[in-house]
Computed example of a mutant assay.
Amino acid sequence: MDRIVETKLWNVDKNVEDLESCSQVVDAAHLIREGELVAFPTETVYGLGANAFSDEAVEKIYHAKGRPSDNPLIVHIGDMDQLHEVAREVPEMAYPLIERFWPGPLTLLLPKAEKIATQVTKLDTVGVRMPDHPLALALIRAARVPIAAPSANRSGRPSPTMAEHVRQDLDGRIAAILDGGETGVGVESTVLDLTVSPPMILRPGGITREQLHEVLGDVAIDPAFEAKAEHVPRSPGMKYTHYAPQGELWLVDGSPEQAQKKMEELIREAKANGLSTGVLATDETIGAWRKNGLVDAVLSCGSRQDPSSIAQLLYARLREFDDLGIQYMVGETFPKQGLGMAVMNRLEKAAGGRIISV
């Protein structure tokens, strides 16, 4: 990207009574309407926003991120009126989901309205959600247009859960960053295709299959989670390596004892090859790793008893390994139930499919 700009960093107190009138939000909304890019926090990760009705504005997202142009974007709305500007039609089954999960980390794939910029998606469907973050909602409402927004990081990198992560990746490439503190959920939204029967999860995320089942009954899972390059992705996260640290990450799947033994073996081999090493551990295993002194860096991504803590910390920990210059990492795996499905989806993509079963 040849265009270098001065990126403004605005710290915003999300507890301000009228965020839409806050000067930083007003200025950010003006930038959106003028076709510029603004990063902003949601309850999942930081998003990189552009006017969803402007092809020229949305095109800037792909250039700033280095994102493949066939990777569709999600459109964020601030109220139900905008839903009908974004979607050509809304099926009846969408409304109980909206009542239960919006605002929140659920993206619905719906027939695309004509007003949506072609650059948002080349398909006849569009992903739309209403984020559960006061600053995100204030920005969208102040901008008075739906905002197309993928995660605010360079393509392939771990998604940003803090404004500093955005600055590291996109400083000089975007107009502004709204700093609203650390995000909560940590992994991106669940993408649910409502144009098929039964509805199908295209990307696991902050709303679990079990929660969706309570509302809809039967919910399918797209087998194309492991889609190859020739497949046309219908949702973000279905194609390409994502969420990856700069070093090489391997996952080891097995019983705690067998996994620990294999991970130690891999670490010794990496150290013998002169690589700096790290372990992505959990609260339950970090003590043993620190005690044996085998690795250069040990970080916990949360507790196995609390998958939400792992979802929240995962990306930040992968970025910490980069900050420490770690070249080779091993990590644990998790059961693919509840939020564990989203966690493992992100881990498997961060590892580029490098998984050893023992």
Rank of each mutant, 00 (worst) to 15 (best):
M263R: 14
G287H: 08
G186H: 13
C22A: 11
P160N: 09
L73D: 14
M93C: 14
L108M: 13
Q337I: 10
L313Q: 15
D2V: 15
L109T: 09
E265R: 15
E36S: 00
L19M: 04
L37A: 07
N15Q: 02
V26P: 13
S21C: 06
G184M: 03
V252Y: 06
N11Y: 12
W289S: 06
V126T: 11
L299T: 11
H76L: 11
L73E: 15
L37C: 04
K14F: 02
M130D: 08
L31Q: 01
A143P: 03
L19C: 11
V295P: 03
V185H: 12
T241L: 12
A113Q: 13
W102E: 04
P233A: 15
V191M: 13
R290W: 14
E265F: 01
H30Y: 04
Q305P: 04
A288G: 10
K262V: 13
G156N: 08
P131T: 02
A244R: 04
L123G: 07
T277D: 03
I61F: 01
S197G: 13
D323S: 15
T42C: 08
P105V: 04
V75P: 05
N153G: 07
A259Q: 03
L202M: 01
P134H: 01
A148D: 00
A288E: 09
E188C: 06
E332Y: 05
G184F: 10
L339W: 07
T107F: 09
D132N: 12
P245W: 03
D132P: 09
L194S: 10
Q337F: 15
S21H: 05
V38T: 09
N11K: 12
S189A: 10
A220V: 06
L137W: 00
S189N: 02
V26Y: 00
P103A: 00
V90I: 12
L275E: 05
G35S: 02
L347G: 05
K261T: 15
S308I: 08
V279H: 14
P256F: 03
H242P: 02
G287Y: 01
S21T: 00
I74N: 11
G237V: 08
S23P: 07
